[in-house]
């Protein structure tokens, strides 16, 4: 599974939305995530990709695309 597909799957599962709704241009806010849900989402990325995300980096992750690009960079 590509990083993009996996990120979309995690977001859909964590936020309880369908994978079809999780398009790269969407912000997490638009997908219904409040600030706590975003922190939980970053935790899920860390667990699933076995990486550590710095707080300063985590606060920049506001869209689906940003998360995909960031995790692509970490895992490539």
């Amino acid at each position: 599974m590509s990083v993009q597909d996996k990120v979309i799957e995690i977001i859909a599962d964590q936020l309880g939305v369908s994978a079809g709704e999780v398009t790269p241009d969407k912000t997490f806010d638009e997908l219904g995530a409040d600030s706590l849900a975003v922190v939980e989402l970053v935790m899920a990325f860390e667990d699933e990709f076995d990486v550590e995300v710095e707080e300063s980096q985590a606060s920049e992750l506001k869209t689906v695309k940003a998360a995909i690009d960031f995790l692509n960079g970490l895992t490539s």
Partner: peptide
Amino acid sequence: LRRVSPFFIP
């Protein structure tokens, strides 16, 4: 303990 669920307390 670096990161715990933000929903832990609420």
